[in-house]
Design a protein around this nucleic acid. Structure first.
Lengths: 207, 207
DNA sequence: TAGATTGTTAATCGATTAACAATC
DNA sequence: TAGATTGTTAATCGATTAACAATC
């Protein structure tokens, strides 16, 4: 199976979605230009999805969109839980882009007394000890760790792993060592920030 | 000037920071292993920072840390403003990792009536029309766009550009076309999410 | 048919990794 | 000196881009 390039595919997806006229025909050259990608690359990516274009015509926008959503599973609704109930958790719980990917935050866990019982963006807040029960009941396989006042990131990871979660998205600064079979991805906002800050530092290079 | 690889440098930075004993000597092999990087790569990256290791000894942790912070400007305090006062804005305003990069959110702008006048994580909330004045007064060059009920992402970008901001970090789903001279970076959480979701989809490949 | 755009092969480019003499 | 680890050059690898015959 060819390795997929998520970033490019999601870029095609976004651009095609922006074009309400996605049912129209689009040439690789055209899509490429708007995505900042080489036309040949577009054709290869689409070929990897099993799509065939018509010579002298192009690809059908709607078909491309559907193929991306199908292959990436964007239409399959996936439940995720969040550990931590702070600002990051609340922001992620109803982050607009998530629904595009078929992600729904189904529950939030934290032992923060003030917060327990609350409902955030449709997700109920439970104490941490309810995590295994709820996760198994809902068949959740994706966990998100955010800063919490009552649980360390490591404790959060342990709870998620015991609950059968297979992939963890870490928004805390902690370095988490994943047990075998569990995928941990650190969201390194600081990396992007560092790049941006570096770009605007004094005396930019000419052109 | 050699092109810097921000992701690796920030990874070295994080690992060395985790090791409280950063003053100790560290071999490229050791650092490489903990960062999931090739040892030769580590030596090249450090060489690009102007660092020299001692054969048969290694590099001094504290020196490496200092060189990374110096080159990336992590110790230079940079002010940033946020447009939008929703949950994402609040989460970012006191995101713990930002201070590591020398970033401080100095003001938040939005025309949301309920929110105006509030103070979030030390940053005051102003109406959008105060943006040019405040940005120029504070010499801000970095702007962050988050979802807002009263301003579209495009309007937010225009306001920031007019205020002299040179780099924009976009957390909304909107596709922003940057005017020349302005760097726009889209934070594509959905790309990472799509990858994670793809990884936990049914019937994972063996091993 | 002429013109446009595809799919695919070959060439290029850059980044990663291996090898090893130099050095502490 | 022997052993360890560096800096750097050469080899490998994979990804991107160019070229072009095939096709609508």
């Amino acid at each position: 199976m060819k390795r997929l390039h998520f970033e490019r595919l999601m870029r095609y997806h976004r651009v095609l979605t922006d074009w309400a006229v996605a049912s129209d025909v689009v040439a690789s050259e055209h899509l490429a230009k708007h995505c900042g990608v080489d036309p040949t690359q577009v054709r290869k990516d689409l070929a990897a999805l099993g799509l065939r274009g018509k010579p002298s015509v192009g690809f059908t926008g709607a078909t491309v969109l559907a193929a991306i959503r199908e292959r990436l599973g964007l239409d399959t609704l996936k439940g995720a839980v969040i550990v931590g109930s702070g600002r990051m958790a609340r922001a992620l719980a109803d982050y607009p882009l998530f629904s595009v990917c078929g992600l729904a935050v189904v529950a939030i866990f934290d032992d923060d007394i003030e917060a327990t019982g609350e409902v955030v963006a449709g997700a109920s807040l439970y104490p941490l000890k309810a995590l295994p029960r709820e996760c198994r009941r809902l068949g959740v396989r994706l966990g998100i760790i955010t800063p919490s006042r009552s649980a360390t990131p490591k404790e959060a990871m342990q709870a998620l792993v015991e609950a059968g979660v297979r992939a963890i998205w870490n928004f805390t600064p902690a370095t988490l060592v994943a047990p075998p079979g569990v995928l941990v991805r650190d969201e390194q906002l600081s990396v992007d920030l560092a790049e941006l800050a570096y770009a605007v530092r004094d005396v930019p290079e000419a052109r």
